[in-house]
Design a protein around this nucleic acid. Sequence first.
DNA 1: TCTGAAGGCGCC
DNA 2: AAAGGGCGCCTTCAGA
Length: 555
Amino acid sequence: MHIVLDRTHGDVRATTVSDSDEIVRVDTVADLAAFVADREREHPRWVWDDTSRWYPQLLAAGVRVDRCFDLRLCHAILRASSLTADSDLALAGTGPWDAPPQQSGQVVSRPSHSTLFDLDQTSTRNEGADADGVAEFQLQRAAVAGCPEPARIGRLLAAESAGSLVAAEMRFAGLPWSSAQHDAILTAFLGPRPAVDGARPQKLQAALDLVRSRLEAPELNPDSPADLMRALGLAGLQVSSTRSWELRKLKHPAIEPLLEYKKLARLLASNGWVWRDTWVVNDRFRPDYVPGGAATGRWATSGGGALQLPRQIRAAVVADDGWKLVVADASQLEPRILAAMAGDRGMIEAGSAGDLYAGIVASGAVETRDQAKVAMLGAMYGATTGESGRLMPKLARAYPRAISMVESAARAGERGEVVTTRLGRSSAPGSSNGSWSEGVSSADATRARERSRAWGRFTRNFIVQGTAAEWALCWMASIRRRMDDLNDHGVLTDGPHLVFFLHDEVVVHAPAHLADRVAAEINEAAAEAGRLLFGALPAEFPLTIAIVDDYGQAK
DNA sequence: TCTGAAGGCGCC
DNA sequence: AAAGGGCGCCTTCAGA
């Protein structure tokens, strides 16, 4: 059973749709939270335009749902997927369902934390009546039913939607954050917080003073690449950029403090005290996740930078008293995904002993673990030069199925064709202007060829990164369900719950006495995700799991 | 004065 | 050590 929620002229309408797609009931809803809590007992799948518009207020009211369809996210998948290319949905022109998300982050997340989960927030974002959710839902149902592999795409839609629930719940629960520990880290690196936010902390200023004196540039602004380049040039140092790795090659007394300055300035600007004042409230970091935000289906963030949380400050992520953090990351996820989706038994076998790269060495394909790693990265990213490019042919001989899969994805992209992940997410069409055509200057032709190759590198990576993202969504959906099974209270933050996600890594905040069981369930969830994507194939997705008091202790 | 691009760097 | 894919966010800087 499905219940479609949408708004018409300010009223919330709830349309109950049976599994045979018949509308069996329509309600006008006055108290949304009470309605959802009541009907949730029937275990429907809730259908709404955008989880980030509906779910936060339900969570704030203490109401959770088990399953949903996020119509906007699903629409994006169905419109582009090669599996549903013939559907009415895909053939129709673009409409309201193709619009980007409604900026949930800006309303919900910026410093106005007093209105964090304001029940009224959705109405302030509405401009006129919503698009018809019931009609869209029916179009989507038809698209799935009419496609050659409804199970694949259906699984993807369910996983994508489950991810949207996880994102909202992680934001609601927040990542446990010790402001005191964070402050200690910042102070150790930078010195005490300056009285004025714009001022440079003591250690940053000290590094800058050294740079300025050693370059004899008292007015130097090291944050300005142009200014810095000029000062370096006057000191006799020729560089093509001011990137750290370029500077590291230089021999000059100013370089060391300059690199130190860059490191500290980065920490201060990205995750310093101002960042904490903005994003951490009551010792909880609440970033704004954007499910499906990347073209490949990976998540993105639109505030807080959760997916770039530097290792330097992860020790500030501290479990509550009596609680633990269970940190799990999937080892060598993307190469394993590549092996599994290609059905390359040899590469799957190479990964079965635990370390895929060691297994590749053992098979005799390359000589060292480092070579194996670099060659695999080259295969997934499309390296053409350097050591990685040289090693590729060896890999191709040893694992022809895996390598030919990514190679043909690259060729397809170069021709402007669409490529598709395991569960059915397709890339956008590229422009097939890579071939030489008459009346085009050779410079233009070269540029067009480079564009086409670049798109080929994108599609090559798309199928691997996108399928890895699908695995991660299935993994998280399973973890979420399993955590609920371990929770006798029913209140999200009273039991073990997901608090962080980083592409191939999750953190669960768990009561200490449950930590071992949580770890076991996370392992089971990984195996379940593997089966969901690859069926009976013996592909393994081993995890590294740590039960710790703070995130800095993991890895 | 505001906006968008570019340089740079954090994460996977 | 960088090269290849995907991102977000900070600062500077040029142009409207």
